[in-house]
């Protein structure tokens, strides 16, 4: 474990806590893409299939459970909870996210570290996570003004994988046989998808103005 990866995991956890706060405090999921939340639930379920078979550390197991439980809880909230469900922007959240699932799985069938069930699902989860934010970014562009908590949620979610890139550089430099090309390339693509969001987020922070993504 290095400082970059710990900071990345904490930033990821923070993004989830901010989203939970937003939904709990405002009893609303306006501006939140249910599809992105569903994709993230699939990402965690596919990536942590080894939850009960490979024990890495208490921290690792604990965080995996937190990520799986929180992502399922958020999807449940948006789909089932009557107050929250009513505020879901159904006609704005129209990204065909099942195409992202299909494309990621197809890519994982061809590009993986080993042709085993766990490795293919792990690669699938890596590719899917890289594009999982797309429905959310599209929704933000369509919904015009973005409330602070939703903006912070997306910012921390994008920042965590950026910190992971620093972690991979650090591990590549310090560990002789460390290579994680699939995660690394995917992580760079994932972070790059946030580039314009980060730009407008920085502008709104600098001018102390409302975050607004151009349509």
């Amino acid at each position: 474990m290095n400082i970059f990866r710990l900071a990345g995991d904490m930033t990821h956890l923070l993004s989830i806590l901010v989203l939970l706060l937003k939904i709990y405090a405002t009893k609303s999921c306006s501006g939140v893409s249910r599809k992105t939340q569903e994709l993230y639930a699939i990402v965690f379920l596919a990536r942590y299939l080894d939850l009960f078979t490979d024990f890495i550390s208490v921290y690792n197991t604990f965080m995996k459970i937190v990520f799986i439980a929180s992502s399922l809880a958020i999807v449940w909230c948006i789909r089932v909870h009557p107050m929250v469900k009513r505020s879901y922007d159904k006609d704005l959240d129209t990204f065909r996210h099942y195409l992202l699932v299909a494309a990621s799985f197809l890519l994982a069938l061809f590009l993986h570290e080993k042709f085993t069930f766990l490795e293919i699902f792990w690669a699938f989860s890596i590719y899917l996570e890289a594009v999982a934010i797309l429905p959310q970014l599209v929704l933000l562009q369509r919904s015009g003004n973005v409330d602070n908590l939703t903006g912070q949620y997306v910012f921390f979610l994008g920042a965590y994988r950026g910190l992971y890139i620093l972690n991979w550089i650090y591990r590549y430099l310090t560990e002789p046989r460390f290579t994680r090309w699939i995660a690394c390339v995917s992580g760079v693509v994932q972070t790059a998808l946030y580039a314009d969001f980060f730009y407008y987020y920085f502008i709104s922070w600098k001018n102390n103005s409302k975050l607004k993504l151009p349509a």
Binding site: I56, W122, Y164, A183
Partner: peptide
């Protein structure tokens, strides 16, 4: 798993 590339990251 036993071989080198244990998935130790989240």
């Amino acid at each position: 798993n036993d071989d080198g590339d244990v998935k130790d990251e989240l």
